[in-house]
Design a binder for these strands. Structure first.
Length: 564
RNA sequence: UGGGGUGUCGUCAAGCGGUAAGACACAGGUCUUUGGAACCUGGAUUCGGAGGUUCGAAUCCUCCCACCCCAGCCA
């Protein structure tokens, strides 16, 4: 076994699989599946599961199926199926011809239920939903057996057939497993296996009016597909005895091993389908692909790469501890990836006019600028330089504090890939006193940023030529919530929403090379962060950029700490 | 007061009876035409707590404590 390769992840699940391989359970096969219910969009928590299941399959030379767990027609739709397929593929995984649907197994599942009935392992219960709840007992008290528990096999079979035929109202009867109403594990107290539900299924239409429950459908779907390791999240741990019970009663020949791991939690956001639906529904965000939410669609639009997400999923590990991963790790993973591959460009988010008094009016120079100083393979482009430029407002201070070493009156700085410039005067708005224009002189000897006399400068700032720059909109995103764990108390999590999670800047100016850049392209705006051309709103006339993540900013950190 | 889980650095997480990996975060420093990147350095005398077994325990035993999940005809 090639377990010497230290780059392969190890975790308790892989340990179990190794065990199985040694003992030859499953004849050396490894088969997994990713089984989403198509009733919502995938998020980063699903990505963890996707990476785990497909990753294990690849590592052990097995296969991972993509299966829609579509046994509850209410809420499921083709739109979600399509988004799931799209997202898993985008993440970089391939299920080849193994896209399955639990709904394709409905007939087989029905026959299994009939078998259970014939074996006396299940019965048709005619208690109402409320009665079933009452009969179930509580956490500390055993339940009571249903009065319908001992119907004859013939009656059960007849009733079940008529349930399927649509002879009864929704809720009139259910199919229940006959297990143990006194079980300390509530899941085993005669769980409901089938319910009557007159709803149009997005795939089977009105063909069925009874639908199998998760516990019944899932283990059998796994078995049908000959899955060996059925990996799911911790909350299904209580269901494992039922998973095994059903397969045992039916004497199926493929009995997968269910293994549970802790679902992902991320700080400063929410990761449950329910909360995400609430945010989208209430209009707290613009939709399932809002770049502020951790859906795969949102992250894609924000500019995250599949590589970064996969790497993140590997680094967080797999265990059974309830945990909350620090958002900083996710941010680190994108930075790490984008640092490698994103071309560097110059863009000014909050422009401040800068005039170079001694630079000839009308003259334009082309500054050769590499796309990636550390990686010449990315090539270079020419950035036009002229008398009137824009610089970042925050790169100039009239009265700079001690450690601020950007532009200030009398100070000399370097314009990246341009010249050294020195501030000689400022123009202020007479009413507000705000500096609206900075005047500088440049040193013609310092072209491309070096002084022949060897003198140094404390800062290099970015800039853009006023006449040549392209106007753009830039959207700055911040954490969705003000607190690390908005679910800390189970009160209304929406009250912790960060009202400043989106800042839209409409007067940005970008270097001319960015004109007409393709949606989805990612760049580093030097000194600012990584940005991605918006997939939806960007036009060739007016580019719209989303900030993926800022650069690490030790100046910002300093100023933040001084405030404290 | 039932059952099932989990407790190792701020956050994740290795460790599987032989004397606490690694990552992120944090703190210092080197370097730098991005206050970026890269590189170096620092940090748990201690593993939820208390006992016990052992030459030796995060790892084994006992008791206790904390947190999570389960009473949908959701998954």
């Amino acid at each position: 076994m090639a377990q010497t390769n230290s780059s392969l992840p190890t975790d308790f699940i892989r340990d179990i699989i190794d065990q199985h391989l040694h003992t030859n359970r499953f004849e050396g096969r490894v088969a997994t599946r990713f089984p989403p219910e198509p009733n919502g969009y995938l998020h980063i928590g699903h990505a963890k599961s996707v990476c785990l299941n497909f990753g294990i399959a690849a590592q052990y030379d097995g296969a991972c199926n993509l299966r829609m767990d579509d046994t509850d027609p209410s809420g499921e739709s083709l739109e979600y199926v399509e988004s799931i397929i799209n997202d898993v593929r985008w993440l970089g995984f391939n299920w080849e011809d193994r896209l399955f649907y639990a709904s394709d197994y409905f007939e087989q599942l029905y026959q299994c239920a009939v078998q259970l009935l014939k074996n006396g392992n299940a019965y048709i219960c005619s208690l109402s939903a409320e009665e079933i709840r009452e009969y179930r007992g509580t956490l500390t008290e055993p339940g009571k057996e249903s009065p319908y528990r001992n119907r004859s096999i013939e009656e059960n079979l007849d009733l079940f057939e008529r349930m399927r035929a649509g002879e009864f109202e929704d809720g009139a009867h259910v199919l229940r497993a006959k297990i143990d109403m006194a079980s300390p594990n509530i899941t085993m107290r005669d769980p409901v296996l089938y319910r009557i539900k007159r709803a149009t299924h997005y795939r089977t239409g009105v063909q069925w009016c009874i639908y199998p429950m998760y516990d019944f459908a899932h283990c059998l779907s796994d078995s049908i597909e000959r899955i060996t390791h059925s990996i799911c999240t911790l909350e299904f741990e209580n269901n494992r005895p039922l998973y095994d019970w059903i397969l045992d009663q039916l004497k199926v020949n493929a009995h997968p091993q269910q293994i549970e791991f802790a679902r992902l939690n991320l700080s400063y956001t929410v990761l449950s389908k329910r909360r995400l639906i609430e945010l989208v529904g209430k209009g707290s965000v613009t939709g399932w692909d809002d770049p502020r939410i951790p859906t795969i669609a949102g992250m894609r639009r924000r500019g995250y790469t599949p590589e970064a997400i996969r790497n993140f999923c590997e680094r967080i590990g797999v265990a059974k501890n309830d945990s909350i991963i620090d958002m900083a790790l996710l941010e680190h993973c994108v930075r790490e990836d984008l640092n490698e591959r994103a071309p560097r460009v110059l863009g000014v988010l909050r422009p401040l006019r800068l005039v170079i008094d001694n630079y000839p009016e009308g003259q334009v120079e082309e500054c050769d600028s590499p796309y990636h100083p550390q990686n010449p393979e990315l090539g270079s482009r020419k950035v036009p330089f002229s008398r009137t430029l824009y610089i970042e407002q925050e790169d100039f201070m009239e009265n700079p504090p001690k450690k601020f070493f950007r532009l200030a009156p009398g100070r000399e700085v370097r314009l990246r890939y341009g010249y050294f410039i020195k501030c000689v005067s400022v123009v202020k708005n007479p009413n507000t006193g705000e500096v609206v224009e900075v005047h500088c002189t440049y040193d013609p000897e310092t072209r491309s940023g070096f002084a022949p006399d060897g003198r140094k400068v404390d800062a290099t700032i970015h800039w853009v030529s006023a006449d040549h720059s392209v106007p753009a909109e830039v959207r700055l995103y911040d954490r969705l919530f003000r607190v690390a764990n908005p679910m800390g108390e189970d009160d209304d999590f929406t009250k912790y929403l960060n009202s400043k999670s989106l800042e839209t800047l409409t007067t940005c100016r970008l270097e001319s090379s960015l004109k007409g850049t393709a949606p989805g392209s990612r760049y580093q705006f030097e000194r600012l962060g990584y940005f991605c051309v918006d997939l939806k709103d960007s036009t060739s006339q007016r580019p719209v950029f989303n900030r993926v993540v800022t650069l690490r900013d030790s100046w910002a950190k300093m100023t933040r700490q001084e405030k404290k």
